[in-house]
Amino acid sequence: MRTRWKPLRRALVLLMLLPGRVLAFELADLQDRLNRTEALKGRFEQQRYLADLDTRLKSTGHFLYERDTRMIWVLETPVEDRLVFTAENAADGADEGSAAGTGNDRQRQQVGTLLLQLLQGDWQALQERFTLDVAGTSDAWQVTLVPKAKALRQRFTRIELKGAEHLDNVALYAANEDVLKVRFFDQQPFDPAATEAANGPAIR
C-alpha cells in the first residue's frame, strides 16, 4: 500500500491560490474568513523556477472558485489547459488529452477532497500535517506551512502564503530548490448561480 504525496503538494499549491480576507491573525479568524468566501474569480501569473537549469517558466491564466463545490484553473499562455477540481471527481471533464495527465483518477480524487477541505480553511486538518505560522498585520499577513512528516519534507520544504484583502501570493519551495510562485490579481467575489448562467461558457 502506498500513498503518494504529489497530490497533496498540488492541492496545497492550489489552496494557496485562494483569496481570503484576513482581519486578525489568529488561525481561527482566518478560518472564519475563508468560510465566508462564497465564490471568487480573478487572474493569476505563475512563475516556475527550475534550479537545475537556472530557468524561469512563466504562464498566465484565470481561475474561479466556488466554496464546497469546485475550483477551475484555466491556463491561457503559453499553452492552454483547464483543470477542474470537485469534491466527488477531482478532474471532472478536464485534462482532455489524458495521455498528458501525470496523475491517475485516484490521485485527482485525493487532490479534490483535500483541496476542498483546505479551501474551507480547515486549519485543524492542516495542522495534523503542517506546522503553521501566522505573522504580519491585517494589511499584510503571512502564513508559513512546514510539513511535519519527514517523507513530505523530502519533497518540499515550506509553503508561504501572503495576502491582504485577499490572498495575493503563494510560494512553494521544493526540496530540489525549484520554486513555484503564483501571484493573483483582479480578484473579485461573484455570485456562482448568476455566473453559471452568464459566464459559464466564457470560463470554459
Binding site: V13, Q46, L57, A100, T102, V182
Partner: peptide, 9 residues
Amino acid sequence: RNLFSPTGQ
C-alpha cells in the same frame, strides 16, 4: 502542460 500547470512536477 506539465511544465506550466501548477500541479506539474
